[in-house]
């Protein structure tokens, strides 16, 4: 399997008003006409604001340390903590990935808020997050197909900051990527720029498995994704 870079169209994401509403907290059967209209308009705007890119690099020769719940990749040790370690430990190689929705959707969100339109800014912000995550999902599909060609399977995506994996480890993750990979950078607080970006690991191997529902593994009871997925 080779390192790969992708560009996606916003329309590839199939984002719709209902999905954005659910991320905002609206449950099945709940909606608000005014909000739905604003989201529909913002989704049209986002088509030109979002520049979806994703890339992964494949690392073989990875070493897991069960007592430390860590993995060593290219000489760098990642303290995955119990949950992520448990999901990745059977991996024979690791795809380290970055994806982004680009700079402009975040800029539009900040501009709307600065101009006093907090609601429009919030809607762009949520769409940007979903677009970055959606780019990761599309990249993961490509990885899955490449893995299957070699008789391998892949795990779910796991990112620093989730399931107790310290977000600070994002700095080490960036050391594994080529300079200016996707044009994404990370600052001293582990914040990525563009802010609507995602980083993480996907395990590859014969014995690994993809879990349709992973929220039961995590102890973040108030996480919005637990409520909607």
């Amino acid at each position: 399997m080779n390192d790969s870079t992708f560009k996606f169209e916003f329309s590839d994401l199939n984002l719709d008003v209902r999905q954005i509403e659910m991320v905002m907290g609206y449950r099945e059967g709940e909606s608000h006409e005014a909000i739905s209209d604003l989201i529909a308009g913002a989704l049209i705007d986002a088509e030109s604001f979002c520049e979806l890119k994703a890339e992964y690099r494949i690392f073989s020769g990875i070493e897991f340390n069960p007592s430390e719940k860590s993995v060593k990749i290219a000489g760098l040790e990642f303290s995955l903590k119990k949950i992520v370690f448990g999901q990745l430990r059977k991996s024979e190689s690791m795809a380290v990935f970055l994806s982004t929705a680009g700079e402009k959707i975040g800029e539009m969100s900040r501009k709307a808020m600065k101009d006093g339109d907090l609601l429009q800014g919030y809607i762009y912000d949520v769409i940007g997050s979903e677009a970055a995550d959606g780019a990761s999902a599309l990249m993961q599909e490509k990885l899955k197909m490449a893995a299957e060609m070699e008789g391998l399977r892949i795990t779910n995506r796991y990112s620093p900051g989730y399931c107790d994996w310290n977000v600070d480890e994002q700095h080490k993750l960036f050391h594994l990527m080529k300079d200016n990979f996707c044009g994404i950078t990370v600052n001293s607080s582990a914040l990525m720029s563009p802010e609507k970006s995602v980083s993480g690991f996907i395990g590859i191997g014969r014995e690994v498995r993809f879990n349709k529902y992973t929220c039961g593994l995590c102890d973040m009871k108030d996480c919005i994704y637990r409520k909607i997925r």
Binding site: M24, G25, Y26, H32, A34, I35, L38, G116, D117, L118, L119, Y122, I123
Partner: peptide, 17 residues
């Protein structure tokens, strides 16, 4: 009480402004 969500709060804020 989770009877409304962030967008409705922001709509109210706009009206308050």
């Amino acid at each position: 009480r989770k009877e409304i969500y962030v967008p409705q709060m922001l709509m109210s804020a706009k009206a308050m402004n």
